[in-house]
Amino acid sequence: MREQNLKLVSEEGIRIDGRRFDELRPLKIEIGVLDKSDGSAYVELGKTKVFAAVFGPKEVHPKHLALPDRAILNCRYHMTSFSVDERKPLGMTRREIELSKVIREALESVVFLEEFPRTSIDVYVEVIQADGGTRTAGLTAASLALAEAGIPMADLIAAVAVGKVEGHLLLDLCDIEDKYGEADMPIAMAPRLNSIVLLQLNGRLTKEELKKGLELAKKGINEIYQKEREALRRKYSGVSPVEV
């Protein structure tokens, strides 16, 4: 139960963890962290910690599931049992099944699947600690893992949630803000394409708030996008082409 006097946003507009309304939590990105996959990434946004790994393009088993004109993309979003406050029982929850689907669809909207007919690309997102914004951090990590795997994409995906808490529109909700806030809206974009690839809303917003929230999200998404690009450049700095 929420404590009676808990205030999530102060009179001065400072949030419970010291951030202003339009501030992201500290973001850490590492690329190529799991050697046995074809591409992988680790994303830490505050206390939210997520791994993603990609396998493929590879043969489809069983073969009759293969598509003649494009690759199939499989995605699993999963949380470890100890990632949340109350231990999560083993196995996939309905929430994890839904998030696997919306993450997959977001990725499918930027991956050039037609380049790899009759194959599959498997994407795994593993949340090792959940403190709000796991689907968006997971999607960001998955997009980087795909980039590391060399999968052709129209753009990288950057994602963040915005929400309304005690009447304030806030960027990048942490768990407690999400839990006691009035609305939570995860958004993922392909920034170069000016396109939204994932959008969900849980809660209630006025039309004006929705518009303002989207602007706030775009600010966060652009910051994340820059960090993603920096991480990729860091990963490949010092690597230059081989004379062929």
Partner: peptide, 24 residues
């Protein structure tokens, strides 16, 4: 024209190309 993968941009036969860094 946009890049499809992480790679090195180059001109080949007057075409803009990207040599993938982790190409298969």
């Amino acid at each position: 024209v946009y890049a499809l993968t992480v790679g090195f941009a180059t001109i080949k036969n007057d075409k803009v190309c990207v040599i993938p860094i982790k190409g298969t």
